[in-house]
């Protein structure tokens, strides 16, 4: 089990790193900057709501959220661990960072499956 931990989390980290690198800049640019500024098409509520209601949108976003949370958790764990030299707190840092990622994934799933 001890041997399984590192490749498991590294797999999520690198999968999430690749997915977020390829998708997030465009997604964020459109949803947070061009849409509120009214640039380009698709600024109305109806269009966005239709898109948000599509099962593929929700499934895709859930996958991105799951991997992005674990990607960020893994990176941040090492940032705290090496950047601030907190070796003695590794167990605590791991539980908090991966724990936050797991809780956020569950919340994202609840939101995307039940609410939207």
């Amino acid at each position: 089990m001890r041997r399984a931990r590192d490749p498991f989390f590294w797999g999520l980290f690198s999968g999430g790193g690749m997915l977020t690198a390829l998708l997030l800049p465009a997604l964020f640019l459109v949803t947070a900057i061009t849409a509120p500024m009214g640039w380009f098409g698709m600024t109305g509520y109806e269009e966005w709501a239709t898109l948000a209601g599509h099962p593929l949108t929700r499934a895709g976003l859930l996958l991105v959220a799951f991997l992005a949370f674990f990607h960020a958790a893994h990176r941040f764990r090492y940032t705290l661990y090496d950047g601030l030299q907190l070796y003695h707190l590794d167990a605590l840092i791991s539980i908090v960072t991966y724990g936050v990622a797991a809780v956020l994934t569950v919340l994202a799933a609840a939101l995307l499956i039940l609410v939207v």
């Binding site: 041997r3 399984a4 490749p7 498991f8 590294w10 690198s14």
Partner: peptide, 20 residues
Amino acid sequence: YKVDATLDFFRSLVTPGRSP
């Protein structure tokens, strides 16, 4: 090495009887 070890690990999850 990390990539290979990770691929081996996830393959071992879907292939029973194979150890990482």
